[in-house]
């Protein structure tokens, strides 16, 4: 049986988030924690993309000769794709700042252990 693309995307997003939350909570290495956080962010982004999926939909570019009613009924929803780009940029900036702080903390403590640095 071939699974519906949207359902598969949502399940993958859910799996990414669960793995990410598990890693953030239970892994001690700060770099691994950041990778886990990236999983959570990616899961949310995939979830957002899956919202724009339309079964049998066409690309949302109005080409010459295309009928307006056909386009308006069948084009997939472009908004989530535009939103997810912004979300990716935000995620990348946040991760860069986190990694920068971790570099400084690693110099200070000589370790990447969250239990040692953050006292968890």
């Amino acid at each position: 049986m071939i699974m519906d693309t949207q359902l598969a995307s949502l399940l993958t997003a859910g799996a990414l988030m669960v793995i990410g939350i598990f890693g953030t909570l239970f892994l001690d290495n700060l770099i691994k924690k950041v990778i886990s956080l990236a999983f959570i962010g990616d899961g949310a982004n995939l979830f957002l993309i899956a919202m724009g999926y339309k079964v049998g939909g066409i690309v949302y570019i109005f080409l010459p000769g295309m009928s307006m009613s056909n386009f308006s009924q069948n084009a997939s929803y472009p908004l989530p794709f535009a939103l997810v780009l912004t979300s990716i940029v935000i995620g990348a900036s946040t991760m860069a700042v986190m990694l920068g702080i971790i570099i400084l903390l690693n110099k200070k403590y000589g370790s990447l252990s969250a239990s040692k640095i953050l006292g968890e």
Binding site: L30, K33, V97
Partner: peptide, 9 residues
């Protein structure tokens, strides 16, 4: 860093 980790969840 703690604040950012919580924020990233």
């Amino acid at each position: 860093l703690k604040y950012m980790i919580l924020g990233s969840i």
